[in-house]
Amino acid sequence: MPKLTTKTLSTTSHGNGLVILESDGHFIYPGLAQTIFDDAVFGPRILKRLQRLFVDHPDGLSESGHDWYFGYLVCAYTQTHFGIKKLLNYPSVTKDLFSLCLTKLSE
Rank of each mutant, 00 (worst) to 15 (best):
M1G: 13
M1H: 10
P2T: 08
K3R: 05
L4A: 12
L4I: 14
T6Q: 14
T6W: 06
K7E: 15
T8Y: 11
T8A: 12
L9D: 08
L9S: 09
L9W: 09
S10K: 13
T11Q: 02
T11P: 03
T12H: 10
T12L: 12
S13E: 11
S13R: 12
G15W: 07
N16M: 02
N16C: 05
N16L: 11
G17W: 04
L18F: 08
L18M: 12
V19R: 14
I20D: 09
I20G: 10
L21P: 00
L21Y: 03
E22T: 14
E22F: 03
S23F: 06
S23A: 13
S23N: 11
S23L: 04
G25N: 08
H26I: 09
F27G: 05
F27K: 03
F27V: 03
F27R: 06
I28D: 00
I28F: 01
Y29N: 03
Y29V: 09
Y29Q: 08
L32W: 02
A33H: 00
A33G: 14
Q34R: 13
T35R: 13
I36C: 09
D38T: 01
D39E: 14
A40Q: 14
V41T: 14
V41R: 08
G43A: 01
P44Y: 01
P44Q: 06
P44D: 04
R45N: 03
I46S: 04
I46F: 02
L47C: 03
L47K: 14
L47Y: 02
K48L: 10
R49Y: 04
R49Q: 15
L50P: 04
Q51G: 13
R52H: 10
L53R: 02
L53E: 12
F54C: 04
F54S: 03
F54K: 15
F54Y: 14
F54M: 10
V55G: 07
V55E: 12
V55L: 11
H57A: 10
H57I: 00
P58W: 08
P58S: 05
P58V: 10
D59V: 00
G60Q: 07
G60R: 04
G60E: 02
S62D: 11
S62Q: 02
S62Y: 07
E63Q: 10
E63Y: 00
S64A: 09
S64D: 04
S64I: 00
D67G: 08
W68F: 13
Y69E: 06
F70E: 01
G71K: 02
L73H: 00
C75L: 14
A76C: 05
A76W: 01
A76Q: 08
Y77I: 05
T78V: 15
T78D: 01
Q79L: 13
Q79N: 15
Q79A: 10
T80P: 02
H81V: 09
F82G: 03
F82M: 11
F82P: 10
G83W: 08
G83V: 11
L87H: 00
N89P: 00
Y90T: 07
S92Y: 03
V93Q: 04
T94H: 06
K95M: 10
L97H: 10
L97W: 02
S99I: 13
S99E: 13
L100A: 07
C101A: 15
C101N: 02
L102D: 09
T103C: 05
T103N: 07
K104Y: 15
L105A: 14
L105D: 10
L105I: 11
S106G: 02
S106W: 06
E107F: 01
